[in-house]
Amino acid sequence: MTEAWAMVEDGVVAESHGAAGLVPWWSFTKTVLAAAALVLIRRGVVNLDEPVPGRPYTLRQLLQHRAGLADYGGFPAYHEAVARRDEPWPVTDLLARVDADRLRYAPGEGWDYSNIGYLVVRQMIEAVTGEGIDDALKRLVLHPSGIAGARVATKPHDLAEVSMGDASTYHPAWVYHGLLVGSVPDAALLLDRLMRGELLPAETRKVMQEPFLLPGLVQDRPWKQPGYGLGVMVGETTGNLRVAGHTGGGPGSTIAVYHRLDGRRPSRSAAFFSTRGDQARTEEKAFGLLKG
């Protein structure tokens, strides 16, 4: 088993362990996609609350998982194909298989986690920038935030030097919104800079962190009051911390990247990665670093 973690205090890596190499950021990629979309909104290129061209939902609803779209994460044939090491399906095939054009509820009237929603966000970013998602995220978010070592993996050879646990043959294109890989300290630094830095102005960060409160608890996870903002999980933990960030998991590993929102000094962000594959434990470890 491989584990690595890093803690950032007042913008500086204060603690790290086993964190020199690259790891998959899994759904922390959603936070970076949301940040890129918010940069484009700030520049007047896209609008948060107008319908996405040709679609019945808004960008805000996509970023908050409230667009009514299905998710391939609960589609058995998807997991079976990944387990067989099949080549990833073309996007059009994926969308047809999950009947993606049929909304599960009217936009804004429900909440369901949707990787397909973030595929639409990726497609929007690529369309308005004229760039592939790797170049777009580097230009809009990563490089302005001082993160030089993270990148989007698209082929199996892109994971050759990435800690993948027992999923060494995984094809990253199975993550249809894109799979960022980077170091654990860079994940913590990036979130810290998104939550406190100049890339997103204070009013935008406030909107990003405003949660839609989820009904009930996240089963067997260390959340007292879970919610979801724009590309970030936001809420109160069972350890009485208010946090924003994201947990991610895929074959072979999990990662949790969070920032403490209570305003106490020092400010603190943390990332914890494990090839144990237990999201609840990974979150508990990250929250423990935040609590100190």
Rank of each mutant, 00 (worst) to 15 (best):
M7N: 09
L48R: 10
S253R: 05
D262R: 00
G11F: 02
Q225G: 12
L230K: 08
A187L: 02
H246F: 00
D99F: 07
Q279I: 13
G178K: 08
D86T: 12
S114W: 06
E50F: 11
V32P: 00
K224A: 08
E50I: 09
Y170R: 13
A256H: 01
R85Q: 14
R281V: 14
H157F: 15
H17R: 15
V175L: 11
D71L: 12
Y78R: 13
P24G: 03
E284S: 02
L140A: 05
R265A: 13
L159R: 00
G245W: 02
D166K: 08
H143N: 15
S183F: 02
S183V: 05
G73A: 10
G117I: 03
A67L: 07
P156C: 10
V32F: 00
D134C: 06
W26L: 12
G11W: 04
L103I: 04
T2Y: 08
F273E: 02
V52S: 02
G146N: 06
Q61H: 12
L180A: 02
P226K: 05
L33N: 05
A202Y: 12
A280S: 07
L241T: 03
D220W: 09
P156V: 07
G149D: 11
H157V: 14
L261R: 15
S114H: 11
A160R: 02
A37F: 01
E9H: 00
A67Y: 06
A286V: 00
